[in-house]
């Protein structure tokens, strides 16, 4: 088991390096650098500008610069935000919990919807329930998150006035009231993301269950006289959900994309809205670091899925 774990982690490192290299190359290919203004400034002699460039290593080969950047990132030196006047790592640490909370809660809610619906749909294929669920799944992933978000705001905040549409991190309340306010303001962002996720997950669960339900061991379980509920719960679902783990992990890039949009609509103070603000304020260190953090989160979720997969499926050998 530990061996398997270690190997998975060692596989994740090159892909993180690859992603960071892609990001760095994109940045290096982009026109303009921190010193490009110096060359147009008549008060700065060209020699001074050139020596400054040399001093900060801007003329070195790209791989050397990448290595230096990578070392700084590993050491926790993520740069300084021009717009917010604090260190980038502090800024991200401040914003990360809100994003993780919204993404995590929406994934749980999506699973809570998708697993029962997918299992029921697959145990009665082509029934009315299956067709309705399938149509809803199509509607769900054809609805862009920004539109669902606006419609929810329109219905629940503007028309009914039940829920607040601006997410606040400074709620002036204590005890239960504080928790209640936090839940209330999280309902809309979480359900927007969850609806989008649940629709594609339902289809994954349905096809995974359909693959398993025809296998011989399921017939055997029925032949033994087990009730349909036990067959489905203990024999079918447990095996069917193993590939779903991987499919859910593959969806993570899309989930974080959706999180950026939702955070922007509901003004959730997470790293997604931080990215948009930083882009609009030309705050390059923050933009780079947040993109890198998103990449790390994606790789991390793939890693967790791999480990879960190995734990759930004893057929996978650990050696």
């Amino acid at each position: 088991m530990w061996n398997y774990l270690l190997r998975r982690i060692l596989i994740a490192i090159p892909s993180l390096m690859g992603i960071s290299l892609v990001l760095f190359i994109v940045l290096a290919l982009a026109p303009g650098d921190p010193f490009s203004e110096l060359t147009t400034n008549p008060n700065v002699p060209p020699e001074v500008a050139a020596s400054l460039r040399a001093k900060f290593g801007l003329d070195d080969p790209i791989l050397v610069r990448y290595w230096r950047w990578l070392l700084a990132m590993i050491h926790g030196d993520w740069g300084f935000s021009f717009a917010s006047r604090v260190n980038v790592d502090q800024l991200i640490l401040q914003r990360l919990p809100a994003t993780l909370f919204v993404v995590g809660a929406s994934q749980l809610l999506a699973l809570a919807i998708a697993i029962p619906v997918g299992v029921i749909a697959a145990s009665r294929p082509y029934s009315l329930f299956d067709q309705v669920a399938n149509t809803f799944a199509f509607v769900g992933f054809s609805l862009p998150t920004f539109f669902t978000g606006l419609v929810l705001i329109l219905v629940f905040s503007v028309q009914l006035d039940w829920l607040p549409f601006v997410f606040r991190s400074d709620i002036a309340a204590t005890g239960w009231r504080w928790y209640w306010e936090n839940v209330r303001q999280a309902i809309m962002p979480v359900s927007v993301l969850a609806l989008f996720q649940a629709s594609s997950m339902t289809r994954f669960v349905r096809s995974a269950v359909l693959d398993v339900i025809r296998l011989d061991y399921v017939t055997t379980a029925r032949a033994k006289g087990l009730g349909e509920g036990v067959v489905i719960r203990k024999h079918v679902v447990r095996n069917a959900l193993i590939p779903v783990v991987t499919l859910v992990a593959l969806q993570m890039p899309a989930v974080f994309g959706g999180a950026i949009v939702t955070e922007q609509i509901f003004r959730v103070p997470g790293i997604g809205s931080l990215l948009i603000t930083a882009i609009l304020a030309n705050d390059t260190p923050v933009v780079m670091s947040v993109t890198f953090v998103f990449a790390c989160l994606v790789v991390l979720s793939n890693l967790i899925a791999d480990i879960l997969y190995g734990w759930l499926d004893p057929r996978i050998k650990f050696n």
């Binding site: 892609v22 990001l23 890039p253 974080f256 993109t291 998103f294 989160l297 790789v299 793939n302």
Partner: peptide
């Protein structure tokens, strides 16, 4: 596939 496409 593991690049976060929207941030990128």
């Amino acid at each position: 596939l593991s690049l976060p496409s929207l941030p990128l």
